[in-house]
């Protein structure tokens, strides 16, 4: 096994629209080991499309190309649908923004996790049930047996997202892609969910791609940060060195947030240089 879990080189995502071709991702390259990588950008920067392209979830008119897109040596662009299906949810998982839309509303949370588990691992129902309960406990559900038999609408947003994480991690994936996993949650709940995610990723030694618009959050959570603008990476930086960011866009993003500690007014704004998009 290679040291790098995921290798991405010159990833491009194009959308053929009526109005012409729109390139959402324009030549993104990075490697991911068993570490926490953050991808940060504003809306339209292509950060979500990057995550989706890796999993082969680019929506229909989109077209993905790359010089290299391999997961653990498997070429994701050439892999058969069958291989991709076993990878997705098995060795690679994804947590989406809003649990309301990613959980099946007519199935109990427990059933959904069991189904996710049995889809990828040969296991008896009793075994899957034990695994599910253990997983619900791992995401700090106070009463796993009760949560097991609840429907998604019966739990709060934070619990829903934790159930989602439990479902995504029950198969012990090697890599997790989290696309704005906590943006729909309240701040206090957000921290709690992140703490659970952090603990699971650390103890299981997974690779994590954390996609978010929140530079502050990503930098405090990840080891390494890719800053995306207009479809490509403008800066790659270790999270601890964020204060020394070179690119004006990264610096602008950091400075334009109002801070609780000091009162700057007017807030510095971002002057967008057309050259960044080249």
């Amino acid at each position: 096994m290679t040291a790098n879990l995921l290798e991405v080189e010159d990833l491009r995502v194009r959308f053929h629209l009526r109005t012409g071709i729109v390139e959402a991702v324009r030549g993104v390259s990075f490697q991911l080991g068993r570490e926490r990588l953050g991808i940060v950008g504003e809306s339209g920067s292509g950060k979500s499309q990057t995550g989706r392209a890796i999993l082969g979830l680019t929506p229909p008119p989109g077209e993905v190309s790359a010089k290299r897109l391999t997961f653990d040596g498997i070429d994701l662009l050439k892999a058969s649908r069958r291989t991709l299906r076993t990878l997705r949810g098995g060795r690679i998982s994804m947590v989406m923004q809003d649990p309301k839309y990613s959980l099946n509303p007519v199935m109990t949370i427990g059933e959904q996790i069991i189904e996710a588990y049995q889809a990828h691992r040969k296991a008896s129902r009793a075994e899957a049930r034990d695994k599910t309960l253990a997983m619900l406990e791992a995401v700090k559900m106070r009463d796993p047996v009760r949560v097991f038999s609840l429907y998604p609408h019966e739990v709060s947003g934070g619990m829903g997202q934790r159930a989602m994480i439990a479902m995504m991690l029950v198969t012990d994936p090697d890599m997790l892609i989290a696309d704005e996993p906590t943006s729909a949650l309240d701040v206090t709940v957000q921290i709690e969910v992140l703490r659970i995610l952090d603990e699971l990723v650390t103890t299981r030694g997974m690779g994590l791609i954390f996609i978010s618009h929140d530079l502050k959050l990503v930098s405090s959570f990840c080891d390494r940060v890719l800053v995306m603008y207009a479809g490509h990476v403008v800066e790659e930086i270790a999270a601890s060195n964020l204060r020394d960011a070179q690119h004006p866009y990264t610096r602008g993003l950091l400075n334009c947030l109002p801070k609780l500690q000091d009162d700057v007014r007017p807030l510095p704004t971002l002057t967008r240089d057309p050259a960044w998009a080249l």
């Binding site: 504003e42 809306s43 618009h213 929140d214 530079l215 602008g252 993003l253 334009c256 947030l257 109002p258 007014r265 007017p266 807030l267 510095p268 704004t269 971002l270």
Partner: peptide
């Protein structure tokens, strides 16, 4: 709104 746009709107409201 995006963070950079938020700063602009906050400045506008302040002003």
């Amino acid at each position: 709104l995006d963070a950079s746009v938020q700063a602009e709107v906050l400045n506008l409201l302040d002003d």
